[in-house]
C-alpha cells in the first residue's frame, strides 16, 4: 500500500460510505471491509511514522 496519508484516507472514506450502502452485495461489503482495513493500516502506519519522527526531532531540539 502506497500513496500519501490523504490519498489513503480518501479511499478509506469512499469504502466506508460504500459499505453502509444496503444495496451492495454481501461479498462486496466484505471485500469493502477487507480493502478498507488495508487503507486503515496504511494510514495508521503513516501516522505512527510521523509521530516517531516528531519524537526524534524533539530529542534534537
Amino acid at each position: 500500500m502506497s500513496g500519501t496519508f490523504e490519498e489513503n484516507m480518501e479511499k478509506l472514506k469512499e469504502l466506508s460510505e460504500k459499505i453502509k450502502d444496503r444495496d451492495i452485495g454481501i461479498e462486496e461489503a466484505v471485500s469493502c471491509y477487507e480493502e478498507g482495513m488495508k487503507y486503515y493500516r496504511s494510514c495508521e502506519e503513516i501516522l505512527k511514522n510521523a509521530k516517531q519522527k516528531m519524537e526524534k526531532f524533539e530529542g534534537e531540539v
Binding site: 496519508f5 484516507m9 478509506l12 469493502c32 486503515y40 494510514c43 510521523a50 516528531m54
Partner: peptide, 27 residues
C-alpha cells in the same frame, strides 16, 4: 510541533472513526 501533533491527532481521530465505521459494517 504543536501544530504537527494536532494534525496527527486530528488524522488519528478521523482514521479511528473510519475504522469504527468499517468494523461496525463488517458483515
Amino acid at each position: 510541533k504543536s501544530s504537527a501533533l494536532k494534525r496527527i491527532d486530528d488524522a488519528e481521530k478521523a482514521l479511528s472513526s473510519m475504522g469504527t465505521v468499517l468494523s461496525e459494517n463488517n458483515p
